[in-house]
Nucleic acid binder design. Structure first.
Lengths: 141, 141
DNA sequence: TCCGTAAATATCGTAACACGACATAAGACC
DNA sequence: GGTCTTATGTCGTGTTACGATATTTACGGA
């Protein structure tokens, strides 16, 4: 069941360019996290906890969805970060199967410093990324 | 050297939302690659070779930049993909230190099928990603 | 209430992969 | 033709995400 049409050169190039920009964006963010003394994944976890929609409290399962990881991987990540004192965990009050993850004061501070210090530069990368997206989306929409 | 200003709730949320959309985008793409029988990284390598700017021929170093990997990691990736018969390598004609990577017919076909089959759906994800970016960029630009 | 089933999290072994450190080979320049 | 730089290649290591599976708690019906 092979499709009959090909992609042309510029379409491939637009796809490749988009991926390049995404990778640059992620690379920048990872370097920023490491400069702040955080593992990139740890940073992402803190951000996911803090940025939960509707002020919803973050369970392992919620975080797995936001981080697009499997629940067991998320569990492991949470433990690693808990080991560094950046988050705490507690059993859910209504559903005692759940684990609710919260930021510690150290976690809040680490996330704040990192976000503040790099937000402007991040916006620059984001802008380049947005251009790449536009190029892809607008082509033969 | 701590910055004096905080981020507000909606800024954290915009950052978290953006990362979520990027992860969804990448997840979708990875799943598509696996459905087509390709490792996600292999797909990325094929695309990077095919989408080289200015029809430039792809050396290991060029690909390392496009993939945002270290040259040695890129070398290893190229070998893995070469082992599957999707690319070939040859010494550079002018500079014999270089390795030039090209797609085989199988590589071309794998990339084409994957790109064609999923380009439309990819655009949907790309659109969601673009929205997340807009939200981040426009805030207090 | 008791039981079966489902959902949420936890454990463990495995594999992929990127990297740092170092090695080799080819060009560049004097 | 010696030295410095660049491009690639090798090897050992560490992180991490995952599949398979176990455990704990919820839930719905008889």
């Amino acid at each position: 069941m092979t499709s009959t049409r090909d992609l042309n050169r510029s379409e491939y190039r637009a796809l490749a360019e988009l991926r390049y920009r995404i990778r640059r964006f992620l690379r920048f963010s990872e370097a920023a996290a490491r400069d702040a003394g955080l593992e990139p994944q740890h940073h992402q976890l803190l951000l996911a906890v803090k940025g939960m929609p509707d002020d919803r409290r973050a369970s392992i399962g919620d975080l797995a969805e936001r981080l697009q990881l499997k629940p067991n991987s998320t569990d492991e990540l949470v433990r690693r970060v808990e080991g560094r004192g950046l988050v705490t965990t507690e059993r859910g009050a209504e559903d005692r199967r759940q684990i609710i993850v919260s930021l510690t004061a150290d976690g809040e501070e680490a996330l704040r410093e990192l976000s503040v210090a790099h937000l402007e530069e991040l916006r620059g990368e984001a802008r380049a990324l947005a251009e790449g997206l536009d190029r892809l989306i607008r082509r033969r929409a």
